Simulated scan of single mutants.
Amino acid sequence: MSASLDSGPPPPPPRTPTTTLRRRLAELRGPAVPARPLDARALAALAANPGCRRRALLDGAGVDKGALAEAIGSPSAAFGQSQFAFMRGNAFEAKVKGDGGTELLRLLHERTGAGAEPPRDVLAPDLAAAGPEGRAARTALALREATAAGGWAFLDHPMLALEVAGSPAYLEPDAVVVHPDGRWTVVEIKSFPMIDATADPSKVGAAARQSAVYVLALERVAAVTEGASVHHSVLLVCPKDFSNLPTASVIDVRRQLSVTRRQLTRLARIEDLADALPPGTTFDLDGQSGESLAAAVEAVPAVYAPDCLAACELAFHCRDRARAEGEVTALGRSLRGELGGLTTIGEVLSAARGASGDPDDPTVAAVRRAAALRTEAFACRS
């Protein structure tokens, strides 16, 4: 990858929501309902579809989208790990991190430390604290102390904070390693295998997008830590072949980092989304009918794409609405980009028949040409 790719300035520190905003978000999800925390997977999905205000608001308010989908009579999109895979992943992570992260640091040195001394006398600070805010503060302090000490440090499940649409999100990477030269490296541990040193590209891509969110959050801490820098290559640790032995690969996430930073800055602020709702709108499942909840969901604009099926519990509901309204986004983002100002299937068909559209518009001309070729092909076949 080109070295000229600018990582951009570090993100600003997260701001604590005002009491009014906290109260408003609590009203949206239900006063007695605890907020579901944002994680790196959710932030990566938000960054991939920043135009979807529905997901931005529901995730920002901590609404349980799976329960909401069932309440409005729509099946919740099934994704994520099975219970067996979850247990296997935890067992593999414990194996990799055993003995103070010795095996993990060996893999890191093997992949990135050519010519350097193997890690010795590794510091493993205690990151325990009350609540996510306390843990994030304790993690930041541990990172500063480890960097100042000038040695190796292994942080197991640190807590990082990142502002998203005006509200703080707390993220928990598998591990962060501090190098003696002040570099910080994110470590992501996955249970899918690397067979002959190659893993499933789609799974590696998802891990890279998730890791980019962690790197983005780490940059905020590094910006106020003397001598610190965040490595833009993360260490991905997976089982080797069909065994339970760990192996690792270094992934450059500068491209994912640039995209994630740009897309997250495009997200509308949560307070603006909440203020735009009709008075009395709430997603509280207690005492509300499915019809009223569906009306509340429809009050927030959504942008559906087939990719949502792998990342959002409301994907089936949004897909049905997009199909009913003839939105071309239901056919995929690439096609939506090709069709320019033609946003519905009806507009596309009308332009293809010559009933509407500017003939000088390249998109209209291309659609009409495609329709003519189709007609010609069917005529030849007959």
Rank of each mutant, 00 (worst) to 15 (best):
R319S: 03
T329G: 05
C318T: 11
R333Y: 12
V348S: 02
S350H: 12
R321I: 11
D320Y: 14
S334L: 13
L373D: 00
T363S: 00
A302D: 15
T375A: 12
T343C: 07
E325Y: 13
R321P: 12
R368V: 00
P362Q: 01
A366L: 03
S334E: 13
L331I: 11
E313H: 11
A311C: 15
S334D: 14
D360K: 01
E325F: 10
E325G: 04
V300Y: 10
G357V: 06
Y304C: 07
D358K: 04
T329W: 12
V303K: 14
R336Y: 07
A311D: 13
G337S: 10
E325M: 09
S334T: 15
A351S: 09
R369Y: 00
R336V: 05
F378Y: 08
L335R: 08
V348M: 07
V300P: 00
A355N: 13
H317Y: 15
G346H: 09
V300F: 09
I345Y: 00
A372N: 07
L309V: 04
C308D: 14
S356Q: 13
I345H: 05
H317Q: 13
E338M: 11
Y304R: 06
G340H: 02
P301I: 03
A355L: 15
L339F: 02
T375E: 08
V328W: 00
T344Q: 03
T344H: 00
T375P: 08
S356F: 10
L335V: 10
R321A: 05
A322C: 05
V328M: 02
L339Y: 01
E376N: 07
R319Y: 07
A315C: 05
E313M: 09
L349F: 13
E347L: 04
A330F: 04
G341Q: 11
G332L: 08
I345R: 04
G326V: 04
T344Y: 00
R336Q: 04
G354D: 10
L314G: 07
G337Y: 04
C318L: 15
A370D: 03
